[in-house]
Design a protein around this nucleic acid. Structure first.
Lengths: 151, 151
DNA sequence: CAGTCTATCGCAACATGTTGCAATAAGCAT
DNA sequence: ATGCTTATTGCAACATGTTGCGATAGACTG
């Protein structure tokens, strides 16, 4: 279930991971992780900064982005790019998924791992690439729009 | 073969298309189309601006981006987003292709229509989406990096 | 050719990220 | 507790796009 605050387990895992790498645990990082945990689905960088500043007005964009990079490096967060290239972040633990953007109706749908499996397989056999589902963004026309356009 | 300047046919098609919509043909647009034609493969927005400014130092980013949007609206240019979300443009007429970005070695490879066919087919059957190959950006690990990491 | 309409341009300000650097402060050792 | 080392922060500047607005200048009309 979604929590308003990062669970104890997550914070502790994080502290341990940081300590092991000679890095430090700070109040700001706690806030950023909490905000990410509370924004369970997807949040853009700008949204995250705004929410972090509600709790700590002294926080700056550079700190937030650097922390997000750090969390990605630890495998605790991920980001992908929307159709406009803007960044969207979410905590690891959210099910890994890709994104489908319809240029006809503007809808955005998620592509879960089960549905994506045959796609990833096709990518690997055609190219040798092991694709990251979290970074997979497909642009095109959804079934409804294709039907509407008689394509 | 790549031309240093947009072919006559393209410029004329463009003028006709613009006239039909009550829009205008200007020197700047000629320059931008020429630059795009000369940058046959892919060029980022910043690169295009720089090259346009070589020919017309008075050109501004807003003009270049607005012209690129216009060309996309006319179906004469396309853009996609690289792994960092930066924009990359190319002229329509370049063979339609997708992009593969390796997060291991940073390599970027093109995905031609033939190789992509089974992938697009998998996407359609899994999701109903008709994917745009030109907008397909796959992030992951290339075969070599997967081997190197023993994955 | 002069006049009109309005698309386009250049500018300036803004939005979103990124980076270098000096000041701060976290975590360890004494 | 005090001091040391250096990771982290905040700031300021920059990079890449985007947007609003007044000024410019295409293209058509008479």
């Amino acid at each position: 279930m979604p929590t308003e605050r990062a669970g104890k387990g997550l914070t502790e895992r994080l502290q341990a991971a940081l300590k092991g790498r000679g890095q430090r645990w700070t109040e700001q990082r706690q806030i950023i992780v909490d905000v990410l945990a509370a924004s369970d689905g997807h949040a853009t960088g700008a949204e995250l900064i705004e929410r972090v500043r509600e709790q700590d007005p002294s926080a700056t964009p550079s700190t937030v982005y650097r922390t997000l990079d750090l969390l990605e490096g630890l495998g605790l967060a991920r980001h992908h790019h929307g159709p406009d290239g803007r960044e969207t972040y979410h905590l690891e633990g959210t099910a890994e998924h890709g994104h489908l953007h319809c240029r006809g109706c503007g809808a955005e749908k998620e592509l879960d791992a089960a549905a994506a499996a045959p796609i990833l397989k096709a990518i690997t056999s055609a190219t040798g690439f092991g694709a990251d589902l979290d970074h997979l963004s497909v642009h095109g026309l959804c079934a409804a729009c294709r039907a509407a356009q008689g394509v």
